[in-house]
Design a binder for these strands. Sequence first.
RNA 1: GCGCGAUUAGCUCAGUGGUAGAGCGCUUCAUUGACAUUGAAGAGGCCGGAAGUUCAAUCCUUCCAUCGCGCACCA
Length: 723
Amino acid sequence: MSDEKTNIPKLFLSPYSPEDHENRIYELWEKSGYFNPDNLPGERTEQFSIVMPPPNANGSLHAGHALFVTVQDIMMRFERMRGKKAVWFPGADHAGFETQVVYEKKLEKEGRSRFQMSREELYKEILDFTLANKSFMEGQIRSLGASCDWSRELFTLDDKVVKIVYDTFKQLETDGLLYRGARSSNWCPKHQTSFSNLEVEHEERTEPFYYFKYGPFVIGTARPETKFGDKYVVMHPDDARYAEYEHGQKIELEWINGPITATVIKDEAGDPEMGTGVMTITPWHSGIDFEIAKRHNLDYEQIIDWRGKLLPIAEEFAGMDIRDARKKIVEKLEAKGLLDHIDEKYNHSVPCCYKCGREIEPQIKEQWFVNMKPLAEKALSALDAKKFEFVTERDERVFRHWLTNIDDWPIARQIAWGISIPAKVCDDCGHGMVDIENNVSSCAKCGGNVHQDPDTFDTWFSSGQWPLCVTDFGGESDDFKNYYPTSVMETGKDIIFFWVARMIMLGLYRTQKVPFKKIYLHGMVRDKHGKKMSKSKGNVIAPSEIQEKYGTDALRMALMVNNVPGTDMNLDPDKVNAYKKFANKLWNITRFVLDSTTDHDYLNNPEPGAVDTILRNELEVTTQEIDALMDKDRFDLAAEKIYHFVWDKFASDIIEDSKIYIKSDGGGNARQARQKLLIECLTTSLKLLHPFMPFVTETIWQELPETMKDSELLMVAKWPQDK
RNA sequence: GCGCGAUUAGCUCAGUGGUAGAGCGCUUCAUUGACAUUGAAGAGGCCGGAAGUUCAAUCCUUCCAUCGCGCACCA
């Protein structure tokens, strides 16, 4: 036998070392052209398409990226081997606000600030930064083994994207679904931009709740610093305690900075159960107050400026940061004898910026809004009609709930980095006009001068049209016709509203078709104790480091096994190590099989013995079970099953049982039959494993003799079930 | 406030209407044997609590407890 070892490729004589093979194998795949469905071999009638969630081009890949690349690549490789015309559209996201924040932090470190730069300078610098990150990230996606079609790659600022986004913007206006209006918006005093409700996080807090004497009433508030302009006192029309007061009644009273005239407003929004049942309102700085003011056509005035400082209406407090002002205002009211009492244990939730945690200051702002109700209703009908489905069914209810209670969408952000809004705004009356051609020179309403809208689109507004963009909707290629709607949308469940819901609504709106048939949502990747990864905790696991240490295949397996669709998963380096060992196991199995078949006797078409037949049946049963699990998107269970088959059945039983046959010098049918079985087990295992562990399986495949293979590349070999 | 999920081995988690599974960890033994990135054997669980349905419940139903998450304009 030692002589025959010379026939085994030398690389099998030492343990599998991923770093020696991964790059060259990826190049081999890429050079083959098979990432592009147009080049795939054989007759392929059925299409399979996935749109890759374009990673934010502002840093390196994190574990979540590694997970989605793995899941989607498994789907792609499985379907490609199954004979489908499979395409995976890669991309990169400029990620508007997110990237601008990353860049601002970089500026801060350099002692600079975006508020000292011109808009153009800032944009240019962020563009350079983003493009550099983009190519770096693409390298990382490659290193994870992603079999996506790079020839179809798209960036969210490409002309093609901007055109589609502008067309949608225009069409929304034409259809009356777009409007510009003064509404209460979620304003972050630090980031100087407004947000949609989704970008606001609510933080539970226990804070003092103050009761003040307001003329004959006692009013309650958690935010005394907003109260300077309060001149309306609101109560429920049916509240018997205040029946003596009439709607519209004027009352003279002493307030923070002197006597004022207050007006009684009876409105259903006054909750008799809450506090004293009486409140004063600050329409400029509260959404609910703004609604009341609108209903009764009341005045409203700004109290707090855009940076969170009190305006001159606050008189002696003017210019003070509201975070410092509250206590002082309460002191003054107390000194004036207007403080009734304080409830120190008031529990409420405070809206905060999802990025910096600073309290959101509601501000009235002229904004572009999309009227979402009509779009949401269509999405819900499509779901009712089963035009698309969720793999993780429990997310369907969450999805329905959000769409049923959807708010209008403010799509403008006050930042430089993004697709600029093609619109003019009147200097005089604030009227906004969509102006794609850039030829509006005066206000259509009042004839006044106009200026370019300085805002950019919410990045999700363009991302929401991503499936249209990558499939070249309205373009010259056949991709839209061939691949839209796409087969699966696979992404994180944390962006079900931000992205998935918007893609469905905007895709339906533009094309009358939901952009994907099936939605597979994965959970978050956490550290080994189930804790959220964060820089401050120092528990961040960088995929690239794991890849270096254990190999990409091991990382992919660790991310898949036990990862139930839709639930969070923990990533433990020890678990990755287990699959590194597994890759090596496969390596040594191959060494044994090649060592046992160097004489090529198996080519004589031997008659299988009774045991051979039993073992082959087990292989076939396993193959069918795995195929069924893959078909049901249970890649976690499929991965576990093939792992156990290879280790516990193939290596532990079949190989052990085969040694006696292989060693028998007599040769003969029994030995040849067993050789054939070993080869079958090996090639089938490689195929079944390939979607999960593409590198090691392809590396091995490349070393197998031609007589064992049905294809040059394992990547396009026939899936075993397809025999 | 509304909704969702979880509770199974020391740790992190799968799974099933009929003597409980994985990875890691632990114990003991083995080593010129495809593989020490190994092999064999083993310890370790009244499958959160209570009630119900059933011949049978870790699994289905209800309630409770604890933890986690999502949504939400309550002054």
